[in-house]
């Protein structure tokens, strides 16, 4: 009961925070896709570079979010741009890994047949490899989005705005109301992103592959 009054009396600023938070996620994951998918494809073509790049990527992932944001704060200062830069770097990694493995695990028989019947390298990529790797790539995007919702709350620390602001204020002032107002919507937002991307994955997965798995 108390929760309902709490949310109803604050719905206006809260909604704007949800909006900001979503924008942070959409922009950084969007940039992440634009960077990571072509890069992942490129890695499958240059097999020598792949192990190094992927090892570096998984190493970056072991750096705690708090530390990365600390770096951003010291190097880039406070504000939305440093926050977005950090979030984008993080969003790249899962997408990069899944694009790379997704495409390299397309069975040789398919690419061999595609080449053998006279597809150009681009046609092999767009007609065969990418459709067959759609599921792993999207699931990478989903992982990435869930992480970014989480890191975006942390990024409140360096002035990113969004739902993190409520939690940080709540933690700093030991105000339970603020914590609830930030934590519950951010949890729901994460679940919403996860569920809608999962749905997208099912819709985009080529029909012929659906009954195989």
């Amino acid at each position: 009961m108390k929760l309902i009054t709490l949310f109803s009396s604050n719905w206006h600023p809260l909604l704007s925070s949800v909006g900001t938070h979503s924008m942070l996620v959409i922009i950084s994951v969007g940039l992440g896709i634009i960077i990571a998918v072509p890069l992942g494809i490129l890695l499958t073509r240059k097999s020598g570079a792949a192990p190094i790049v992927l090892a570096a990527a998984s190493m970056v992932q072991t750096i705690p979010g708090l530390v990365m944001l600390g770096f951003a704060l010291v190097l880039l200062g406070i504000g939305r741009k440093p926050a977005l830069a950090t979030l984008t770097v993080y969003s790249i990694l899962p997408i990069l890994q899944n694009t790379y493995t997704g495409i390299s695990e397309v069975p040789f028989a398919y690419t061999d047949a595609a080449k053998g019947i006279g597809m150009t390298p681009m046609q092999v990529l767009f007609k065969v490899e990418l459709p067959l790797a759609v599921a792993p790539i999207i699931s990478g995007i989903r992982t990435s989005a869930v992480y970014i919702v989480s890191w975006a709350t942390l990024a409140g620390m360096i002035g990113a705005g969004g739902l993190g602001d409520w939690i940080w204020t709540g933690l700093a002032t030991y105000n339970t109301d603020y914590i609830l107002l930030g934590a519950i919507p951010s949890a729901l937002l994460a679940l919403l992103f996860s569920a809608s991307i999962a749905l997208l994955e099912r819709l985009l997965k080529p029909r012929g592959l659906r009954r195989m798995s």
Binding site: P107, F108, A109, Y110, D112, A113, A114, K115, G116, I117, G118, M119, T120, K127, V128, P131, L132, P206, R207, G208, L209, M212
Partner: peptide, 21 residues
Amino acid sequence: VELRRKIGYVIQQIGLFPNMT
């Protein structure tokens, strides 16, 4: 690429594209 379009190609693993009818 043009050469291959004039030559049919069948392999043991069949290699039918699973995403196509």
